[in-house]
């Protein structure tokens, strides 16, 4: 596992944090109106700052191997998603995104929370994905 101060995440949980944070930062591409029907998410104003800021925090959580930062970033995304729904329902969209942005943030927030809260000593990196037919688990008959 990477220790504090590391810059290349070695643990799968840390890599997952970096990927989710990077996805959030990359999502800013959806501000481009030229994407037209491929503009899956609408971001503008404050919502862009959320995508960039919390995305950077999630990346830091992975790069520094700090699960607590993943939990903070995950919580921030979920709060932002709830605020976005309220903003849309209120009709003035003061957060600048849309319901799609809220859905996107729920995914990232849930993922970061689960990764941040799962005990690391119980995790072991898997070299290859398992077969879909593998549904067994330890301790059951």
């Amino acid at each position: 596992m990477s220790g504090p101060g590391a810059t290349s995440p070695r643990h799968p949980f840390d890599r997952a944090c970096v990927v989710m944070g990077a996805a959030s930062i990359v999502s800013v591409v959806f501000v481009a109106e030229g994407l037209q029907e491929f503009r899956f998410i609408w971001l503008d104003g404050v919502s862009v700052a959320i995508a960039l800021g919390v995305g950077a925090l999630a990346c830091l959580a992975g790069l520094l191997a700090r699960p607590v930062l993943a939990v903070v970033a995950g919580t921030a995304y979920l709060i932002a998603a709830v605020l976005q729904v309220i903003s849309t329902a209120a009709g003035d969209d003061w957060l600048g995104g849309n319901i799609s942005a809220a859905s996107f943030w729920v995914g990232l927030g849930s993922g970061l929370l689960v990764v941040g809260l799962t005990p690391r000593d119980a995790a072991e990196p898997s070299a290859q994905p398992e077969s879909p037919s593998d549904t067994s688990w330890k301790g059951t008959g």
């Binding site: 890599r15 997952a16 799962t118 995790a123 072991e124 990196p125 898997s126 398992e130």
Partner: peptide, 8 residues
């Protein structure tokens, strides 16, 4: 994440 978390 299923692939990352299933070992845990």
């Amino acid at each position: 994440l299923d692939g990352v978390l299933r070992p845990a």
